[in-house]
Design a protein around this nucleic acid. Structure first.
Lengths: 157, 157
DNA sequence: CCTATATGATTCACATGTCAACTACTTAGG
DNA sequence: CCTAAGTAGTTGACATGTGAATCATATAGG
């Protein structure tokens, strides 16, 4: 029994699993993304920010909270918020507690865009990803995802 | 027995599988990528082009062949090749058969970069991705990847 | 042979991501 | 109170991705 942890390199079979898997997930992601963009005009980044704000206390969050929550670089958050603010999906106000920071607030338009995009987004995930699998395969995937998350030191969700 | 294909939307469990899985794969990918960049100075895009050229007849390919092989947009190929040419990893020559096209040729420097990056790249895939799983999980993943590829109309590899 | 259309490839404008440098405010220590 | 260090956030330079427009060449039909 070769658990394989002592080898430094993957077998060709292991490598093939990585490639086949990684490529397929990439394609699935890009199809979901382009469908989202077509149907709701929102990118995945937009959507994630909107989810976070919608679920937040007072429909608002500090930019740094957002960065921590999404596990994004601060500069990435900055850029994303800048683009979204330009489109009117959110607003940045000076933070009352800390003059360095700003409070990111969901606008009515942002809330509307979020509501309108949820159904199409979920439908795309179902059709493009979920429907590819049998219930057994889906259960295995869940298991594998948990193992990978643990291995990478990610929270279990 | 709810195979679920008739529902339009995923259950919350299905959605959680997608998210947990997608996020984990994203993180794995970005860690492999940044390690590659650190250790070999090559991006994943660079690496894929180098593999294709290395394995090609005469260490060269038509740009359109490359696009088809990698399943990339043509403009993406153009940009990638432009950057790589500037760094001396490849060369573009006018195609002898078709004056519209160009032939992308691996340079000696490109071949050297490819050889030097293979081991670190494989080691990163093994440590970051493969080692997360038991052999059973890996087999399941292979199966799931095949199902997804079929569902998305991708070649089996 | 000539024109309409198709094909190969690049270019442009823009969205998105990373990393490092910078600005501005806060806070701990003396 | 004042300075040094830390923290919040933005900015700039660049790599990468997409889609539409453009340019040059090829090729099918008349």
């Amino acid at each position: 029994m070769d658990a394989g942890k002592h080898r430094k390199l993957p077998t060709s079979g292991e490598l093939a699993v990585w490639r086949a898997h990684h490529e397929a997930v990439e394609i699935a992601r890009s199809r979901i993304e382009s469908r989202m963009r077509r149907e709701s005009g929102l990118s995945d980044g937009d959507y994630r920010v909107l989810i976070a704000l919608s679920e937040a206390e007072g429909k608002s969050m500090r930019s740094s909270q957002l960065a921590a929550h999404l596990e994004w670089e601060r500069s990435r958050v900055s850029g994303q918020l800048g683009r979204m603010e330009k489109r009117g999906l959110l607003r940045r106000e000076p933070s009352p507690e800390d003059a360095r920071g700003s409070l990111v607030v969901l606008t009515e338009e942002g809330a509307r865009a979020y509501r309108g995009s949820t159904i199409p987004h979920l439908a795309a995930i179902k059709e493009i990803f979920i429907d590819a699998f049998t219930p057994e395969q889906l259960a295995s995937l869940e298991d594998a995802a948990a193992a990978l998350r643990t291995h990478l030191g990610m929270p279990a969700r």
